[in-house]
Design a protein around this nucleic acid. Structure first.
Lengths: 194, 194
DNA sequence: CCTACCGATCGGTAGG
DNA sequence: CCTACCGATCGGTAGG
């Protein structure tokens, strides 16, 4: 079996790299750590990726795009923008905290990339943000939130992504409860009883 | 002049280290970077600090404690909890974005420390959080926010600290405007016209 | 994808 | 605080 025709190993490397980059940070993770995590020898990751940076770039972009697929599937057919936001928040926290793809968190490692790679990652992050922006604009249009400007969206992502710094799965707080609290943060108090 | 009796150099090292750790991350910053930033040779920082980790720990703790001093000075004599929160937010964003002490951001580098150092840093962060917790509890007591539980506070710090990932001083958004938007996020819409 | 390896860098130290 | 240095580690490569 020719090694280059085995796409599973590439994906395994990507998953292991994403997990380690989130846990330890890009600079503190060695390519040997990543190799060991998938049962390879020290030099072998470089058969699949030209450099450590390319591993990071691929993990970020493929993680964001696969997270976006989940986002779009979750809100498919949801008309009410308030429900839509709650679903986006819950799914995003799933991307961040539950699956082994914690790539939304990796954007903060962009500084390790050069300008060209950073631009590619920024494009993937824009794609990921698109459904959020649409929902926030709908919420602003019906007066449910006061503004959908950039500060609102960026503050929101900071709040959501920051969760992976302190949230521990299996603790007193469930992801569902966390999603509820986070959505309430964005939406403010309920305007009417439900 | 004996080198050990010059406390200014120690402070210079701490400031340079804090700035570099925030910009590039702890692992990506070399002790040579720090030495160069204050005009020292490669080995000299180790005259002041036993290890790179100790530099990080000291930068975090002294940064948090000096930020706390500013926090307490800013809210001194402020009785209204809503105004108090706005002042805390504005001062915190100043600690984070304006002065060269951006230490509130450094808590996310705690993972580079061992358990004992991490506990010391956690204690400093608890001190920093105390006035926030008191203010949030007052706001909850008068019904201005719905809850002052841990998720609220942690979500809020995530939102605030995340700003240093995207906010650029001198851009279209001023720190005052950012503080306004962030405080509005925590407080929700105004209950009455002002 | 492994073996074997290299050049560079890095945290830290001895001695003054 | 500098000079001079060391051992370890790390990203990456050659050749198969």
């Amino acid at each position: 079996m020719e090694p280059g025709l085995e796409p599973n190993r590439r994906r395994e490397l990507l998953r292991a790299a994403a997990r380690l980059f989130v846990e330890k940070g890009f600079a503190a993770t060695t390519t040997r750590d990543i190799a060991e995590a998938v049962g390879m020898r020290a030099g072998s990751p470089f058969y699949h990726f030209r450099s450590k940076q390319e591993l990071l770039k691929a993990a970020m972009i493929e993680g964001l795009d696969s997270g976006l697929v989940r986002l779009l599937a979750a809100v498919d057919g949801v008309a009410d923008p308030e429900i839509c936001l709650r679903v986006l928040v819950r799914t995003h926290l799933g991307n961040l905290l539950e699956d082994d793809c914690r790539s939304p968190m990796l954007i903060y490692e962009s500084r390790a990339l050069d300008a060209a790679d950073r631009a590619e990652v920024a494009a993937a992050f824009d794609r990921y943000q698109a459904p959020w922006q649409a929902t926030l604009e709908q919420l602003a249009a019906i007066g449910r939130i006061d503004s959908a400007g950039p500060p609102k969206r960026l503050l929101m992502f900071g709040m959501l992504n920051g969760c992976s710094h302190w949230f521990r799965p299996g603790g007193a707080l469930s992801v569902d409860e966390l999603a509820e609290a986070a959505a309430a943060f964005v939406l403010g108090p309920q305007p009417s009883a439900q």
